[in-house]
Amino acid sequence: MLTTGAALVLAALAAGCGDERIGVSDGKRAADESRQPVAKTYWRLHNALANQLYLTLGVGGFTDCADRNIKNSVEYVVDEPLAAKSEKQTEDQFVAMAKSILSTAGWDLKPAGDMLQSAKKNGIKVQLRSFDRTGDDGALVRLVVVGKCTNVGQAKDDIFDAYGGSERDEYRSSSASPIPIPSFLDSDEAP
């Protein structure tokens, strides 16, 4: 009979190896489910910013988790460049305006590094990333929405193969479909 301590150690080891048992189909389902809250958050913020800033196209895809030691896990990221409507607006003014709009939408971003503003809630991270820019091109930042690190087991390679190169989800504003949320193809096909 195992002691309580030995049973806990074995349970912890089994939990660490559990991702190997997540098959491709279940892994794709987990990845798809992980991107839904990211897409919904992105669209809420995109729509809140729409009247004040120039918006382009949101692009979404899977990346390794920030903690690269987490095996067989991915996080879903949507990002979009945002440009000031006034060329006279400084980078600081532009960031302050975007932060104010995002705060009204429920995201109170705080400085989180050089040229980075960030907030996190319910496992979703929202960031504004500034760029060193010279010249009179006007202010530019990137809106980034990052989801939870999600264990996808054996599907990780398939997910990265499907989202390699230029293959990404495109979040295009459209009057026909104002809130599209991309989804995976059938489980027999790549995401």
Rank of each mutant, 00 (worst) to 15 (best):
A6D: 14
A7L: 08
D108I: 07
L185C: 01
S86T: 01
L45G: 03
A162K: 05
R133P: 02
L128M: 08
D161A: 12
D32V: 06
I181S: 12
S187Q: 11
G60E: 04
D64F: 09
D169S: 04
I101L: 07
L109T: 10
I179R: 06
A14G: 13
E80H: 04
L8T: 08
T104A: 14
L82H: 05
Y42E: 04
E189D: 12
L45M: 08
T150Y: 00
T150I: 01
Q36E: 11
R129L: 15
P191C: 13
G16V: 08
L109Y: 00
E20Q: 11
G16Q: 02
G153Q: 06
Y171V: 01
D132I: 09
R44V: 12
T3C: 09
V24L: 11
D161M: 07
F62P: 00
A105T: 09
A119K: 10
N47E: 13
K121C: 04
E170F: 11
D188G: 15
V145Y: 02
A50N: 00
S173P: 02
E33T: 12
M97L: 15
I124T: 15
G5V: 10
V9L: 14
A7D: 10
A176M: 09
L82N: 12
T90H: 04
D26L: 11
G135P: 11
K88N: 13
G16E: 07
K85R: 15
E167L: 05
I70S: 02
L45T: 07
Y42K: 04
T63I: 06
E80D: 04
S118T: 14
G5E: 14
I181R: 04
L2H: 10
S25E: 15
L109R: 07
A48V: 04
V95L: 02
N69G: 08
R168C: 07
I101W: 02
A11L: 13
S73W: 04
S173G: 12
E189V: 03
D32G: 12
K125D: 06
S73R: 10
S100Y: 04
I70W: 01
F184I: 12
P111D: 10
V95N: 05
T4Q: 13
L8Q: 14
Q89I: 12
D157Y: 01
S174G: 07
S174K: 03
F94W: 00
R35E: 06
C149N: 03
A190S: 15
A66W: 03
P37C: 05
D114K: 06
T90I: 00
G138H: 00
G113L: 07
G164W: 03
A15F: 10
G5D: 14
D137P: 02
G58W: 07
R172S: 08
A83C: 01
L82E: 05
L45R: 08
V74L: 15
D92E: 15
A96T: 09
A139G: 14
Y163A: 05
N47I: 02
K121D: 08
E87S: 14
W107C: 14
S86D: 06
L143H: 11
K148G: 05
E33D: 15
N69P: 02
L128G: 11
V77N: 09
A14Q: 07
A98P: 12
Y171E: 01
F94E: 03
D64N: 15
A190N: 12
